[in-house]
Structures are given as C-alpha cells and as structure tokens.
Design a protein around this nucleic acid. Structure first.
Lengths: 215, 215, 215, 215
DNA sequence: CATGAATGAGTGTTCATTCAT
DNA sequence: GATGAATGAACACTCATTCAT
C-alpha cells in the first residue's frame, strides 16, 4: 500500500527526529504526532522508548552486519586463493563501501552516523551494550583482519589509532550538515558524502601508518 | 573559605553531572540536590538551565582563551624576530600544552572534552552559537596560523583535515574512561592523558601531511 | 483434554491473580499473558473486566449455593421428622462443611475467602450487588434458620453478631497465608485450614451466646 | 486562616477518597482536583502516592500510638501500686477508649477503620510493612499485656483469637455505613459507633473466654 | 540574599476496550 | 471462533521556572 505500516512509520520518523535532536530531547509524542500514529502504538509495537531506540539502530546494523560479513567472506576467499595477506587499504575500502551501500537503500548515511555519534556521546549506556552484544562479532572480525594487515603495530597502538579514526569518521559524518554549510560558505565547495569519504581515505591511511610515538 | 560558595558549588556539580549524563538527562534537581543547594538557586544565580550550561563552558574557555592568546603572542614574537614561519608542529604543540594546562587548575581535561563532545553532538544549538560568538576569534587566529604553516594545502582540504583531527581528539578524550578501561583490560596498559596525547601527536601530524586525495 | 479451554484458563488465572493482588491491581494483560491467551479473549468471552470478576465468583458460588440448599434440605427434613428445632451448632457446622467441600474440587478455600474479603473491602459496588441478587436467597434461608435457632436474640443483635462472625472468618481465612507464616514463626505451629476452622468453632459459638450488651 | 494549607487539604481529601474507593481506584488527579490543589503538589509534598498513603495512616496512628502508650502507662502504674494483674476487660476497654478518642479530633473513626480494612485486604504490601515498622511496638506492648491477662490460653490460641477479634472489629467498623443502612432498613434501628462498640464488647470478651477447641 | 512552596506543561507508560479480518 | 493491531483516556511522576516572603 502507499501508506507504509505503523511500525515503519514510527521507525522512519523516530530516526529523523533522534538524529536531529538527540534521544532525550525527542519525546514519544514528538514522534507519534509527526508520524500520525497513536501514542500508545510505540509501546504496543516496541515496548518502550529504549527498545525503540535500539530498533532504530537494528534497522541499520542488521543489513550492515550481514553484508559486511559477506564482503569479508569474499575478501578472505580471494586472498586465500593466492595466499596473500589482505592489505589495510582493501579492508578500509571494503568497510567504506559497505557502509555506503546499506543506508543507500533508505535515505542517508548522515542520519545513521549522527545516530552513531549520539550513541557514543549521549547517556545511552544501554545502546553501547546493545550494539556490542548484537553486532560485536562483526567488528571483532574486522579488527582481527586489521591486526593481520598491520603486524608491525603493537596491539595497543592499533587499538588507539582505530579509535582516532573512528572519531574522525563519526565526528565529521555526524556533523556533516553543519560542517558542509560552513565549508560551502567559506570555500564555495559543496562536498558530497562520497567526496568526504574520498578526503578521509588518504588521511586515514596516513594515520594508520604514522611513525610510532617517541620514535 | 572551607565551604565554596553557592555559585561555585553549582558549577562544580553541574560540570560533573553534565559530563556523566549529558545535558538533557541532567535535571536541575539532580544538580541542586547533589550540590546541597536550593533548587531555585540555579535560576536565581544563572537565570536558566541554558545559561548554566554556558557558564560551565565559560569557566573553561575563559582562561583557555586568554592563555592561548598569550601563548600565540609569544610564539609569533619569537618567530617575528628571526623572520621564520611558525611550523605546524609547534602550533599543535602549543595548543596541546595550553589545553593541558588550563583544566589542571581544577580537576580534569576529560570532563571538559566530554562536555565539548556533547556540545557538538547534542541538540544544544545555543551552545555552538555561544562558543562561536564568545571564543571564535581565538580559534580563527589559530586556524590562520595553521594556514600559513601549511601553504601547500588548499583551504578546503585544510578545513576538513582540521575537523578530522578535532573529531579524533574530542572522540577519544571525551570517551576516555570507557576506552581506557577497554584498553587496560585487553592490553594491560593504563594510559594517562599525557600518554594519549603523545600517541595522538604523530597521528595528527601524519594526517595533516597526508597526500592529497586522488593523488 | 490436556489443555483446558480458553475460558477455564482465564478463570483459573484471574482467580489466582485477583486473590494475590486485588481487582484493580490486576490488569487484563496480567491475566491473559499468564494464561497464555489472547488479550482480546477476555472481552470476547466475558464482555468486560467487571463481568470476568463476577464470573470468577459465580464459579464458586454456583456449586456452593446448590449444595448448601441441598444440605439445608436434608437438615430440615431430618428435624421435620422428629419435630425438633435445628440447633445453632448444627447450622454452623453444615455451613462450614459445605464451604470446605466446594472449593476442594478446585484448589483452595483460601483463594475464595480472599476474594470474598476483597469483595467486601474493595470498591467493587457491582460485586456486592451481584452476589446479593444472584445468591441472596441461600443466605436469607440460612439466616432465617439461625433466627429460629436463637429465638432469645433480638433480630438486630443477631444481625450484628452474624457480621462480627463473618468478619472473623473472612479476615482470618483471607489473610491466611500471612497469618499462618507469623504463627508458624512465633509459635512453631503450622495450622491447616481445617484446624483453623476448628479453632474458630468454639469462638463463634461463644460469640453467638454472649450475654446481651448492657446486661 | 480559613483555608487550610495544601498539605492538610491533600491529606483530608485523600483520606476520604481512599476510604470510599480504595487506594488503586483513587488517582492523584481525583485527589488534587477535589482538594483544589495542583497535581504536582502531591509529589512535591509527599514524594509519591505510596508515601501519601502512608502519611494518611501516620496522621491517625501517630497520636493513637502516643495516647495508647500513655494510657497503658497509667494502667500499669495503677495496678503496679496494688500489685494486681490488669484484667482483660480493662485492657480491651482502654484500647476501645483510645481508638474512639483519637479520630474524634478530626472527623471519624469510620474512615480510619475503612482504611485499616483496606490496608489488610488490598495489595499494599508496603503499608503493612510500614505500619509494623513504625507502630509495631505499641501493638507488641498491648499483646504482651493481654498475654499476662489470659495466662490460661496457649500462646498460639491467643494469637488466633486476637485476630478473630481484629477481623470482627475491622470488618464491621470498616463496612459500617453499608451495614448500618441494612440494619436501619431491616430493624429500624440506627446504631452509632459507640453503640456498635457496646455491642462488640460482650462478644469480644466471650470470644476470648471461649472453651479451648476440642474440649 | 536566598528559599520553600507552588505550578503548568510535559514525560513515558499502562489501561480496558474495540474492530477488521 | 479468535486474534493482532490499534486507540483514547488515564496513570504516576518529573520538569524548569516563578514568586511571595
């Protein structure tokens, strides 16, 4: 039917409002009135606001997780054949591609990155726990492959560098709209998400290959 | 006096609670009851919750801004004498030193970084506006010096790279406790803020010096 | 069949939950989820929560009423033969026996007494009206026989004494579990319902035979 | 002033409504709208509905407890002088007198008894716990004196008989209005609370002096 | 200068009930 | 004959803010 069902309408609206204002600042009434849905429908379908928040994430992470696993399967199979190690660039490239692919089916990477930024910064302890427990293994698999691709880095150093990079990505992609406005105003260039990821690429690679501190 | 005055007690408590839970999730009741201060005192002394949030930031940014200006004065004077340009490393070093210096007078850098992270991610539009209008010039002065130190970079590229770096710094420093716990658990190393900044240094420099995208 | 049908499952569960928590404190969701029955089933089968409450009572009072009528028939027939009046003790004994007999078919007297206590104390005006209109005649018949067995008592006095007794019975039997726990803890005796009724017997008889007030 | 303060208005209204409908069936909105008081005032002054319920009880039990202790002091002092034991009748009489005295200052015993009945029958576990912890010692003192006044009764038997009596008292006094209406309609007598207690007196004494079961 | 009391608007959640299928 | 979905009303409670004192 033309009118998507209640659950989808709630998720679509919640996703946008959460991204715009944050979780605590978005009330269920905000969501349901904008989604033209009965207030009680949220609790009926999701049980609680907390679960709604998790459901919003699950809708992104579920297909991401599945595709990323598949993409890593392929990558590993290809290199298993010729016995070579998967290079770092290829791993990062695969992740970037998968990230870009998934939300393309719906509206935008920006919303998800904003949500991811919120998940880290807001007092939503349950969210980090939920994401870790549900999707932790994909990330573990990825970091393990990164480890093999960067054998020269001590484990702790790699851990921190991955988080430096994660910070760059989440921070710039989640604040994309505001930053893009400034950039456009000051430098007259309007960047797309793809271009921004293009800009991130060499920076990320350099960051991972930086000399050891104190060297 | 032994018992700090009401205003200070409110600021001290608000700062900690905001950092722990976020702005929306921290009620004035939380703050005033923990600070053992009358509920009405916040509105009496600060006017509103919004103003309290700004006051919390002002207490960090005021001395930072003043010291950073002074540090840049010195730096410029020194290089003016021998006619040389200020190198990027020295600029970054000066900022890091100043950032570390200021909150040392109170408790911790971590709290401020957490607040800064919140300021960017949470729906506190007023905060970004406030920080920009009150302390924008110090940051403009800094970015102008960075521009002179990296003449080979196009302006837009420099803009984005500075934000990539800002993301790394805010993300890792604001989530410091959680990340430190993971790192300690997984790699048995407990890093101090100084060590973490030490780890950031080469990564940040490499990031700024990365090859141009598409090159 | 092994799995009792929906109506019975609802009644069984409702009875227990009502007794445990009271009527208002037990939601239809509590009942239907515990009974593993669709939420709408209650309204489908019973029409409303109010009717469900009445149905729970009917399931006890229907067989009780029928048996008690039969028991009183026998009692009257026996004494009609020898022309004697039915003594009070025999009436009370008959009631006690019937009360004990009926719920024995299901689980417990305690539940029913608890429900009866709730019916009197809770704001379920409809319940008292319902019980009176459906089962009032059995009780009228019984009180009339009590009247003949205690001709020396003024009607009003008898009325009040019967209610004093009713209070004792309902109060102790409906709070049986809690009181039994205390008694067991303090005096090391675990009483059964039969024993408790044994303890009630002489007290009830003495109460009915107490001297008139002001005498 | 003519208009009693907010706290008192809430307590007065809550007491009446609780007695009329029960605790769960009375909403804070019912109370505050009838008391012409802001809805938030209940939580401001009492913290929660639960605490309001306890406060309603405390307003009765506090003065009762104090007076009853004083009355027992006198009674013990009087009998200590002539070395005699306090007879049961005098103990019961003292309790009855104190119970009647206290609420006389406000409106009615009936309301309190109704509340007491609710406390026992409704799912207000916190209430029994609260009453026990706050006023348990006064009741312990009383039952200890009853023990000395009835040395011939086994402890367990005394325990149960006291509860039989408690049931009679609470049941009849808490349902007073309804029962009084029936009695008036059927027997043309309108009893006062004092008369009802007069009727209870000989019944209660007989109940305590009934022969042992099985004797 | 400071505060206890109060308030109107809002929160997430639960309720019994209805209804299309 | 039965049920998943939905709903309007109500719930207890919390919020930032105001104001008389």
């Amino acid at each position: 039917m033309a009118q998507p069902d209640t659950v989808t309408r709630i998720l679509d609206t919640a996703e946008v409002l959460f991204a715009e204002r944050g979780f605590a600042e978005t009330s269920l009434r905000n969501i349901t009135s904008k989604a033209k849905v009965n207030l009680a429908a949220v609790n009926y379908h999701f049980g609680s606001k907390k679960s709604l928040i998790q459901a919003v994430f699950a809708r992104y992470l579920e297909p991401f997780s599945e595709r990323f696993h598949r993409a890593l399967d392929e990558l590993e199979a290809r290199h298993a054949r010729d016995g070579s190690e998967i290079p770092l660039e290829e791993l990062l490239e695969t992740m970037a591609r998968t990230v870009l692919e998934v939300p393309a089916e719906r509206d935008s990477l920006k919303v998800f990155m904003r949500l991811l930024g919120l998940a880290y910064s807001q007092a939503q302890g349950h969210l980090r726990g939920y994401i870790q427990s549900e999707y932790g293994d994909v990330f573990s698999r990825f970091t393990e492959l990164v480890r093999r691709a960067t054998p020269e880095l001590p484990d702790a150093e790699r851990f921190w560098r991955l988080h430096f990079i994660l910070g760059s990505v989440i921070f710039t992609l989640s604040g994309l709209d505001a930053l893009r406005d400034i950039a456009e105003h000051d430098y007259g260039e309007r960047v797309s998400v793809h271009e921004l990821i293009g800009r991130l690429r060499p920076v990320v690679v350099s960051a991972m290959q930086a000399p050891m501190p104190g060297a």
